[in-house]
Design a protein around this nucleic acid. Structure first.
Lengths: 120, 120
DNA sequence: ATATATGTTATATTTAGAATATAACACAAA
DNA sequence: TTTGTGTTATATTCTAAATATAACATATAT
């Protein structure tokens, strides 16, 4: 799992890192039980600070993707389908509002979602 | 169109304001050609600074939702379906990655989208 | 015409978060 | 015993967000 940071992005570094790892879980590049790289190692590889990696890991823990023990951060996805659906709803709402405002039809929104799903 | 700001939100004020207006366009609470409140009036109503409203309007202009003339900000949605689809795709991707990581099925993602669409 | 409200621009300050830089500690494994 | 790990603490730098005033030209309403 190679991490590449875009230092010109508006998105914060720890957020990029977090989303990159979530993507890796979604594509099964990394799986339940896998150990993430140490904060120092990943920081070195990505060319960022140790604490920035630490923060990304902490957020991943808070959002239910990993548990952090003495060995490090381990993929451990929380099994709460209801909460997951709720979060997805919240994230989809503003995105769909933008699309409908731009006069995309509801069918077109479904089409785009299908394209996204097919990309996994 | 009453604006309420959550001062405890992580989302920036101008972003909340921007998204609130996009939502109003999507629900047809406001329509093409409508004039938005003056920056001073809206700032007063929402309890925020004039310049914060001004920034929200500027971003809405940059994202193709309004044009700003001497009379103020007027709803004028850019008609570029391709760009709109592209932006929707970009916004949907990380949201779907999160959902799939949390072991939601693709069908469940479609279900949630349907719920969102039905809320409009 | 006068007063008012508008957008616009400019400058300055404050605040908060992001990111980095060191440093130190306890613990486990090699 | 050394090395690598997570963890904690402190301090600094940097940037964006938000606010505070102020001024200007213009358009509208009285």
């Amino acid at each position: 799992m190679f991490i590449e940071i875009d230092f010109n992005s508006n998105e914060t570094i720890y957020s990029q890192l977090k989303n990159r790892i979530i993507l890796a879980i979604a594509t099964e590049e990394i799986k339940q039980g896998d150990l993430l790289p140490s904060v120092r190692e990943l920081a070195l590889q990505a060319g960022i600070n140790m604490h920035t990696v630490n923060k990304a890991y902490a957020v991943l823990r808070d959002e239910g993707y990993v548990t952090i023990g003495r060995k490090g951060a381990v993929i451990n996805v929380s099994d709460d389908a209801f909460k997951a659906r709720q979060e997805l709803f919240m994230q989809l709402k503003p995105a769909i509002a933008g699309a409908l405002s731009k006069n995309l039809s509801k069918d077109e929104c479904i089409q785009v979602l299908q394209e996204v799903l097919d990309s996994f």
